[in-house]
Amino acid sequence: MRELKTEQVRVAYGENVIIENLSLEIPSGKITTIIGPNGCGKSTLLKTIGRLMKAKKGVVYLDGTDIYRLSGKEFARKLAILPQSPLAPEGLTAEELVSYGRYAHQKGFVKQSEKDREIIRWALEVTNLSALGKRSIDHMSGGQRQRVWIAMALAQQADIILLDEPTTYLDVAYQLEILELLENLNKTQGCTIVMVLHDINMASRYADYLIALKKGKVIGKGTPHQVITRELLREVYQIEADIMIEDYSKKPVCMSCRLCRSKEIDTAVVETAIV
């Protein structure tokens, strides 16, 4: 099991500070989901942990080592990150894209070994893509393309997978398909999954652990039952939410909500769950 944590991390875009003095530990072998309003620092935190952004101060530790003391390949063998809406070269097949995940395990320009090919086949199989390996990803649905990217991360054989809004632009059926795939991978492969989601009900249903951010600070963390509460949602999202326990998952869900009254917002009412 990998150990991943941040210590007094400060992240900024120029003079605009997004995250200030943030310290947290990611539970190993669990699904952790980061939630919060737009601009609160969710994606910035994920990019910082995944070494796509460097903190102005503080340290991200992976197995007790500063992530910047690890070589690129060593880091990639331990942690994979899928940014929001990733792009692939035109005409690439699913099998070719998944093969990129083996780069961290190869030396120089050595061709794929039989072990590489075996792992690529396995990654396609567990993501239900075996029949689509030779198909161009340009000719795939959004859900299929997302599964190909996840297969690439699996081929990387990293124990930790970070995903930034993996269900963005997908309809409900494809969202469920992706989240159930990640849940199954966590259970069967034991990998630690950390993702950013906007939909708090999906986050509650599929996460073991939630981190709620607001203005770059952790407002709440813990199990869905500890985080998806009327009080915390009021503080984080400025909404008055009606919470109930879903029969299927036994997790808390937001059935309806309305904006908190203020000088700026007085009568607006939202009758659907927050996304």
Rank of each mutant, 00 (worst) to 15 (best):
I120V: 15
Q156A: 09
K115T: 15
L162M: 12
L154I: 06
S130Y: 01
K115D: 14
A94H: 01
L129A: 01
A151N: 03
Y100E: 01
G133L: 13
Q146K: 06
Q106C: 08
S99W: 11
V110D: 12
Y103H: 14
R121Y: 13
T167D: 06
G91L: 10
K111D: 15
V110T: 04
M140G: 07
E114R: 12
F109M: 15
S99F: 08
A151W: 00
G143H: 12
G91R: 01
A131E: 08
I120N: 08
H139C: 11
G143T: 07
S130E: 04
D171I: 10
L163H: 05
L124K: 06
K111H: 13
Q156W: 09
T93A: 06
T167A: 12
Q112M: 14
L129Y: 12
E96L: 00
G142K: 04
D159A: 14
V126Q: 11
E114W: 10
S113F: 12
N128C: 03
T93M: 10
N128P: 01
L162R: 09
E95D: 10
G142A: 11
A155M: 11
S113W: 11
M152V: 02
K107Q: 15
A153E: 02
R135P: 12
L132D: 13
A155C: 08
Q112I: 03
G101T: 12
A104Y: 01
P166V: 09
A153T: 04
W122L: 09
R135M: 06
R121A: 15
G133H: 06
T167I: 07
T168K: 01
I120H: 05
M152W: 03
H139Y: 05
Q106T: 13
G91S: 05
V148P: 03
R102N: 05
S130Q: 04
F109H: 13
A94C: 14
S136A: 04
Q106E: 01
G143C: 09
P166R: 00
S113N: 05
Y100L: 04
A153F: 04
T168D: 06
G108S: 14
D171Q: 04
A158H: 02
A104E: 00
L163K: 01
D171K: 14
E165A: 00
T168M: 05
S130N: 00
T127A: 13
V110L: 01
R145V: 12
E114S: 15
D159Y: 02
G143N: 07
Q112S: 12
G91T: 10
A151V: 08
Y103A: 14
Q144G: 05
F109K: 13
T127Y: 05
S99K: 04
I137D: 02
G142W: 01
G108I: 13
M140I: 06
R102P: 07
N128R: 14
S99M: 10
A104H: 01
H105E: 11
A123E: 11
F109L: 15
Q146D: 02
H105T: 07
A153L: 07
T127D: 06
R145K: 15
I120F: 04
R121I: 08
Q106G: 00
E96M: 07
H139D: 14
Q157N: 08
R117I: 03
P166Y: 09
S136W: 08
L92H: 03
Q144I: 06
R121T: 15
Q157E: 11
A94S: 13
L162C: 02
E96Y: 02
Y169L: 09
P166E: 03
G142H: 05
I119N: 09
D159N: 09
T93V: 08
